[in-house]
Design a protein around this nucleic acid. Structure first.
Length: 724
DNA sequence: AGGTCTTTCCTTTTT
DNA sequence: GGAAAGACCT
């Protein structure tokens, strides 16, 4: 048994050995948390003879769940197939798949993602004659989602928005139910409803899960907390690991208060503090400690390590954002020559959109990379279209998928016709599928013939699904629907076709995993997987630089980390400037980013950057300034400006000087001069109304209204005009 | 209904 | 600057 504990420090051992009763582990960044979790699972299984099926381990992201599975599998040689190591949402889906009929849904429910809910809310608003200009669908959707968590929430919304939210909430909920669809929130809320309502189901799971482990506890929201509480049985064997400094999901409702709730609900909990860091050098940790101590609401804590000081942190400031990217690429190439692997590098950014410029340059310089994030495979149009077909084949009441499928390619059934089917169903108390079948009763001949033809095709597909292998099935559907012909006219058709081929592979692979199920069940599971794992990457790069958001970097580590686009407005985001709570969350994100680095940290930014197609100058991020100067080594434009000579500076190279001079000239050539003085009111094309704070040379500082904040801009920029 | 041109909106972050 | 929605025409 001692093998298991080798390499653990005393605190870590406590966290592993204290198996009975509630345990709270406060684990600083890099303190070996994952290793503790895995070893705890191993200890339960090997030493306490706990059946793996009696353990529930919950994580936040798929990446974390996969990592834990892999660790358990590899390090411990345990098959994870029957083990419940999953995210909150996939756990919910797994429970609901077996019991959702008790709540009136059908077993083959499908999960719709956030993009879909957005679309749906918008459609419902239009249908209810609500002006989407007056009421932003995105805001309405968010309020509807909040109302799902708590119906009383409506009371806190002001008129007239509350009325809109009330109407849309009702329609949204019944639309999902009628279509047998479930959104991400439902995965948690319906599970809670189920466990509360059906005592035998609750008893089953309480009896099943003897040990519950929750990773990243600081990120739980109230609903997730409630769900955990329902799943933990009277033995209260619950183990939570968390670090309030790494709480970065408040925007999604994460509630640090849950730590206090835990203390109240599990009074005799055992506390373990893991403060020793095994990941980073002290320069990096000191930077992290210095940054995070600027946050007002936290319990002071200092990470320490025995790894020595290490290298200084490098701040590079590029002339342009392109220059910044080139620098990063150059550094990577140099370091690879010195013996680093591409895998050792991570580029972390605040917003997914930043990845684009890195992709461009990496492709050009042939630096292999892996990108995690929203340009997800499963969010691509062709994949969404095709899954819409699959979903509709399984469930003819899924009006949402019908609309998508029937319009790709276009086949003469447009919004007006669909609307009439939906209305007919609603007015006659029919299911959507029945209304489709009865279309000749209420539609013109042309329209109803088209619908009938489409439905016949779907019936055929349903038969073919059982009769032919998945790979052939995909070809069959693509061919019969005319999708292939449509792609031939699309200039991106080739890429789209390749993606669909990739999709075929995914189906084939899953075919093997779910071998003993019927085709329908198989497809249902696969579609569920796809809905929940929106973050799949193209895995084909074995050794590549990692590109990801700071959010998805949590829990990971890299020898070399670049935190990029560190400018006021970019990171921290300008919209957080006015809100201390949000601003401190940005800082925690920075803390997470910094503590990902094992050996070397680069913080980079640029003097000018294209945003919304305009060139802006943003000030350096405060987060750079919060790193003590003695830990920082400066390169690039910041040096050029501050000390005016540095041979390493790319800015010194004549071609860059020319570049930026030209850029400025071209910006100013639009015959725009603004006679601005402190206190003048201005209007900006993108940022709206603002007040001039100061003017210096060709630049000025303008304070814009809340979402935008204070910006430094070219005074004569054509987007700025003075208000009379 | 559907294709093309024009305008608008956009950048949080994840399941 | 680019995607997506809207306007306008066939």
């Amino acid at each position: 048994m001692n093998d298991l504990l080798i390499g653990l420090n005393e605190k870590q051992r406590e966290a592993v050995l204290q198996t009975e009763g509630p345990v709270m582990a406060i684990a600083g960044a890099g303190s070996g948390k994952t290793s503790v979790l895995t070893k705890r699972i191993a200890y339960l299984i090997f030493e306490k003879n706990v059946n793996p099926q009696n353990i529930l381990a919950i994580t936040f992201t798929n990446k974390a769940a996969n990592e834990m599975k892999q660790r358990v599998r590899q390090a411990l040689g345990i098959n994870t197939y029957d083990m419940w190591i999953s995210t909150f949402h996939s756990m919910g889906a797994r429970i609901l798949r077996d019991y959702i009929e008790r709540l009136g849904y059908k077993r083959n429910f499908q999960i719709i993602d956030d993009d879909d809910t957005h679309q749906l809310v918008k459609n419902l608003m239009k249908k209810s004659n609500i002006d989407t200009k007056l009421f932003n669908p995105k805001i309405i959707r968010n309020l509807v989602l909040k109302m799902k968590f708590d119906e009383d929430f409506i009371k806190s919304i002001e008129a007239p928005i509350n009325e809109v939210v009330a109407i849309i909430y009702k329609k949204y909920q019944s639309y999902l139910f009628e279509s047998n669809l479930v959104d991400f929130e439902d995965l948690l809320l319906l599970t809670i409803k189920l466990l509360k309502q059906e005592q035998d189901v609750k008893a089953y799971f309480n009896n099943k899960f003897h040990y519950v482990l929750v990773d990243e506890f600081q990120d739980t929201n109230n609903v997730q907390y409630e769900l955990i509480k329902l799943l933990v049985n009277e033995n209260k064997n619950i183990f939570i690991v968390g670090d309030e400094d790494q709480s970065i999901y408040a925007f999604r409702g994460a509630n640090i208060e849950n730590i206090n709730k835990f203390k109240r609900d599990y009074k005799n909990y055992y506390l373990v503090l893991l403060e020793q860091n095994y990941r980073s050098t002290n320069n990096i940790l000191n930077a992290a400690n210095n940054i995070i101590q600027n946050n007002s609401t936290r319990i002071p804590k200092n990470l320490f390590s025995e790894k020595g000081k290490g290298e200084p942190i490098t701040h590079y400031k590029g002339v342009t954002a392109r220059d910044e990217v080139e620098y990063v690429a150059m550094k990577i190439i140099h370091m690879v020559r010195k013996g680093y692997e591409y895998n050792d590098f991570a580029i972390l950014y605040r917003a997914n959109s930043t990845s684009r410029s890195f992709e461009d340059v990496f492709l050009q310089k042939q630096i292999p990379y892996r990108i995690f994030g929203n340009t997800s495979f499963f969010k691509r149009k062709e994949i969404k279209d095709f899954t819409a077909y699959l979903r509709f084949i399984l469930n003819n009441d899924d009006a949402f998928s019908f609309i998508r499928a029937v319009s790709a390619p276009r086949r003469g059934i447009g919004p007006v016709t669909i609307e009439r089917v939906v209305d007919y169903a609603a007015n006659n108390g029919l299911a959507f599928s029945d209304a489709l079948r009865l279309s000749s009763d209420f539609l013109g001949k042309t329209a109803s013939n088209k619908i009938t033809a489409f439905m016949d095709m779907m019936v055929d597909f349903r038969t073919q699904l059982d009769d032919i292998p998945f790979t052939d099935f995909v070809d069959y559907v693509l061919d019969k629907t005319g999708y292939i012909d449509m792609l031939k006219l699309d200039d991106k058709g080739d890429v789209r076709y390749e993606n669909l081929l990739e999709f075929k592979t995914i189906l084939a692979e899953n075919n093997e995993i779910y071998e003993d199920l019927t085709k329908e069940e198989m497809l249902t599971y696969i579609l569920e997987d796809i809905a929940l794992k929106s973050e799949e990457t193209k895995e084909d790069v074995e050794n590549g630089v990692t590109l990801m958001t700071l959010h998805s970097a949590k829990g990971l580590e890299f020898r070399v980390v670049f935190i990029v686009a560190l400018e006021m407005g970019m990171f921290p985001l300008s919209r957080t400037f006015g809100d201390r709570f949000e601003f401190e969350e940005e800082r925690r994100l920075m803390y997470v980013g910094v503590t990902r680095a094992k050996e070397k940290l680069f913080v980079t930014n640029a003097d000018t950057r294209q945003t919304y197609g305009e060139t802006l100058r943003n000030a350096d991020s405060v987060f750079i300034e919060e790193i003590p100067a003695e830990l920082l080594h400066r390169e690039g434009y910041s040096v050029a400006v501050n000390r005016s000579k540095n041979v390493n500076s790319v800015y010194q190279r004549p071609e860059y000087k020319r570049q930026i001079d030209q850029k400025r000239k071209s910006l100013l050539s639009k015959d725009n001069t603004n006679d601005l003085n402190k206190g003048d009111k201005v209007i900006h094309k993108v940022f709206g109304d603002g007040v001039v704070v100061s003017v210096a040379g060709d630049h000025c500082v303008i304070a814009f209204q809340v979402p935008h904040g204070i910006k430094t801009l070219l005074k004569d920029h054509p987007a700025i005009s003075k208000k009379k």
